[in-house]
């Protein structure tokens, strides 16, 4: 198990600081907006890149997300977490972007994959797991990609992910199970031997 121990005092201070920033943004404070932007930039670009598969699209959707943060900051509920609120907005913006470009970044279905095991074997030799994972992630649905990314990159709990994706915790667990099965199938022995 990795060392994910968090200092609860520091974490609470960070959460309070982010809520303060959102309140300032609601009052039209651009400096507060910049600070929040810097805090979330890397995480959001990474999350959206995985969701959308292209960094250019990710940055565009990131700015659409932050524009929503700017315009809706007055409606943020102080009882919630700023991070789950922002990631929820980013997730919905990503799905909207995917719908706009439907057909280009649709997940590759099993029917379209010809001899997956052969393809895996050819690729394994020269591509490391990280690069291979980039390709395999595209075979997941956007919802499954979101669950994987929010869990492993953003370190969210399943209840936080259910809040971000606006679905029950059972749905989060089911999406994760399906994603894991697909990753095992497509990564094959490459995963286990890493």
């Amino acid at each position: 198990m990795p060392d994910n121990a968090r200092n609860s005092g520091e974490l609470q201070a960070l959460i309070d600081d982010e809520k303060f920033l959102v309140r300032c943004i609601a009052g039209g404070d651009r400096a507060a907006f910049e600070k929040l932007y810097r805090l979330y930039y890397r995480r959001l670009v990474r999350f959206l890149s995985r969701m959308l598969s292209r960094s250019h699209d990710a940055e565009e959707v990131l700015n659409e997300t932050m524009l929503v943060v700017w315009s809706k900051s007055g409606k943020f509920k102080a009882t919630g977490k700023v991070s789950t609120w922002i990631f929820g907005i980013a997730y919905r913006q990503a799905l909207r972007s995917l719908r706009r470009s439907r057909g280009i970044f649709e997940p590759i279905t099993d029917d379209t994959v010809v001899s997956e095991s052969d393809a895996t074997e050819r690729a394994v030799t020269h591509i490391n797991l990280s690069n291979r994972l980039e390709q395999v992630m595209l075979r997941l649905s956007p919802e499954q990609r979101a669950v994987i990314e929010l869990t492993y990159f953003c370190d969210y709990s399943y209840s936080e992910i259910s809040e971000i994706l606006d679905c029950p915790t059972g749905t989060v667990k089911t999406r994760m199970l399906h994603a894991r099965r697909k990753l095992q199938r497509y990564l094959g022995s490459d995963w286990g031997q890493h």
Binding site: P2, R30, F33, E34, Y37, R38, Y41, R42, V45, R46, S49, E59, L62, N63, E64, M66, L67, W70, L129, S130, L133, I148, E149, Y152, F153, L183, W191, H194
Partner: peptide, 25 residues
């Protein structure tokens, strides 16, 4: 999987992207 996905992607271009965000606002 956690180690691979959790790895840093390297340099990102924050400033120009944020300038575009200000333009949108």
């Amino acid at each position: 999987l956690n180690d691979v996905i959790g790895a840093d992607d390297g340099a990102l271009t924050l400033e120009p992207t944020m300038m575009r965000a200000h333009g949108l606002i």
